[in-house]
Design a binder for these strands. Structure first.
Length: 553
RNA sequence: GGUCCCAUCGUCUAACGGUUAGGACGCCAGGUUCUCAUCCUGGUAAUAGGGGUUCGAUUCCCCUUGGGACUACCA
């Protein structure tokens, strides 16, 4: 390399930079057990948290922590054009809410923790520069001044010629420019990108070993890819190699879309003289569009955004368990056998994960899981979670819950604690408002046409007598059996069969059956024909409210 | 176009080369001392097609078809 090349490098990187050796010392290998996995999730802050990002985070975190390793959150904010402020914080907070805790990087309190930082790529520019400079010095990278238009034109030409597109081989014209030509461009004030001088040959094969995809043969990379953009920030590929080396990542778990870049990434690690991490490329969660499958898309699918689940009020645990179910199909068997244990006790298996093959997103399955999870909660837990949700998305519900906390908890406890089979009708917090509205007087309405219909079944006079008689024996302390016996007695007294069976045996003998009487009582108390257990509802409502409503007749 | 990846009920998936191809969700029917939600019982429904290899193929190989990813100074 002649002396003029030093001049090129000096012009490119006038600032003093740490040497690769310095950086090795600053970021030493971690002292962990050999089986401990160091994983990371590396989102780019484009404004929202993707459902697939949560999936990758969950899997990375579980593998790290179940092996006694480290889980890192790194922010890949090298694309300043697409960056949306606040996303990094949103990501950290969201992971935390879903019970995914990172050991390093930005935490929920907006503080960066860990000794291998900074964990935001834009703050690591100097580090990347050290290596770019080093590669330039070693002649393994070069500045390229090809404009976007020129590259575009090149691609078109290649397409016409039937050649592979890209910057490689004899198409890579700046690879062989003289130092004088480079200096000339530099003196014109042009900003170059730095490209890798790829040592690869497309006709050679490279063996890649992926934990999930398996052992595969792919062509070597021969593209002189951009490692540093004109704005001085690295591209994903280069930042990946530098960061995951320096952060001592042992296992890279990431989306399948990166699999085709694997030969390039391995080449990058080799060029930099580093050992590559172990890779695990995850099948993406897909969605049906017409007859075609496609990746869950930020633009097209509201359910791609984590905020969707938050707003709908799916418990975080339900979302996590749904994802675990996609990752390891045996999770639901485990869940059935370990009903009381938290899902973090479930041992995620790589082998099972490898079988997961781009599953289609299934909201109905998530809903089912969600119902199960809410059914397992105590009234207290339902109160806390629904209030938390309501404070953000339904302030009138929040107010209602807070105004009379003990009443709300009584309502939530209907057919819940102590019940043989807990009620399973709520799948998200957004359903609660409608579910419990009739318990509150300002929301209690007796629909006139429904009332009229009912009065055709039971005359107003009979109805009055039935209610009167029932109230004369009813006590709010009555248990389910006592309550029902009293209802049957009252019904029988007025010519209603005590059971449907009895009624069906000889319909001419009765005016109807006890169910009709229950229907009357239910309607008068709740304004609805379908509700949870009436006896439990009455206990929750209390005597005063019951009397007030029944007097409406 | 090039380079890869994938293929069992509608969906998620289970089956050392030997199973009446299993489970879960959904859907349908019936049942459970009030309606609903549950719960229980039963039912519905699949190895993409064609060739091999083998006594025997969902499983191994090849082809076809279908789907997906990547092919940026985005990640």
């Amino acid at each position: 390399m002649d002396n003029n090349y030093d001049l090129v490098i000096k012009k490119l990187f006038p600032e003093p930079l740490a040497s690769p050796e310095d950086l090795e010392i600053k970021y030493p290998p971690r002292k962990l057990a050999p089986e401990a996995m160091v994983t990371r999730v590396a989102p780019s802050p484009t404004g929202f948290v993707h459902f697939g990002g949560l999936y990758a985070s969950l899997i990375s975190e579980r593998f790290a922590h179940q092996s006694g390793g480290i889980f890192i959150l790194r922010i890949e904010d090298t694309d300043k054009k697409r960056e949306v402020a606040g996303t990094a914080e949103l990501f950290a907070k969201s992971l935390n809410q879903y019970g995914i805790f990172n050991d390093e990087g930005l935490n929920k309190d907006n503080k960066e923790i860990g000794d291998y930082g900074p964990y935001k790529q834009s703050e690591r520019a100097q580090i990347y520069h050290s290596y770019v400079k080093d590669l330039l010095l070693k002649g393994r990278a070069y500045p390229c001044f090809a404009s976007t238009e020129e590259l575009e034109e090149l691609r078109n030409r290649q397409e016409v010629m039937g050649e592979r597109s890209g910057y490689y081989g004899h198409f890579a014209v700046w690879r062989n420019k003289s130092v004088d030509e480079v200096l000339e461009a530099l003196d014109k004030g042009l900003k170059p990108v730095i490209r890798l001088k790829s040592p690869g040959n497309f006709n050679n094969k490279v063996i890649v070993n992926d934990l999930l995809v398996g052992r595969r043969e792919m062509p070597e990379n021969d593209q002189d890819i951009v490692i540093m953009k004109a704005d001085g920030l690295p591209t994903y590929h280069f930042a990946h190699a530098v960061d995951d080396h320096l952060m001592r990542t042992s296992h890279v778990v990431r989306g399948n879309e990166w699999f085709p870049s694997l030969p390039l990434h391995l080449q990058l690690f080799a060029t930099l003289g580093w050992e590559a991490p172990v890779y695990a490329h995850l099948a993406p969660i897909q969605k049906m569009e017409g007859v075609n499958k496609r990746k869950l898309s930020k633009r097209k699918d509201e359910e791609a955004n984590l905020a969707y689940y938050k707003k709908a009020g799916y418990p975080e645990e339900a979302v996590i368990e749904y994802l675990l179910n996609l990752a390891n199909s045996n999770f639901e068997d485990w869940r059935r056998e370990n009903a009381e244990i938290h899902n973090s006790e479930f041992k995620l298996s790589l082998k099972k994960l490898a079988k997961s093959n781009g599953p289609l997103f299934d909201l109905i399955k998530l809903t089912d899981i969600s119902k199960d999870i809410i059914a397992r909660l105590s009234a207290e837990e339902v109160y806390i979670s629904s209030l938390k949700w309501a404070q953000e998305f339904d302030t009138s519900l929040a107010k209602r819950l807070q105004t009379d906390e003990s009443y709300a908890k009584k309502i939530f406890n209907i057919e819940r604690e102590g019940a043989v089979k807990p009620r399973k009708d709520i799948s998200r917090w957004s359903e609660i408002s409608a579910e419990i509205s009739y318990f509150y007087d300002d929301n209690f309405i007796l629909d006139a046409s429904l009332k009229k219909e009912l009065m055709n079944e039971i005359s107003p006079e009979t109805a009055k007598l039935l209610i009167q008689d029932f109230l004369s024996v009813y006590n709010t302390q009555d248990n389910q059996e006592e309550w029902f016996n009293k209802l049957k007695d009252t019904a029988a007294k007025h010519g209603y069969a005590a059971s449907n069976k009895e009624y069906q045996a000889d319909t001419s003998k009765y005016k109807g059956q006890v169910g009709t009487v229950a229907k009357l009582l239910r309607f008068l108390l709740t304004g609805r024909l379908q509700t949870p257990n009436l006896c439990a509802i009455m206990q929750a409502m209390g005597e005063e409210r019951i009397m007030k409503r029944l007097n409406n007749l």
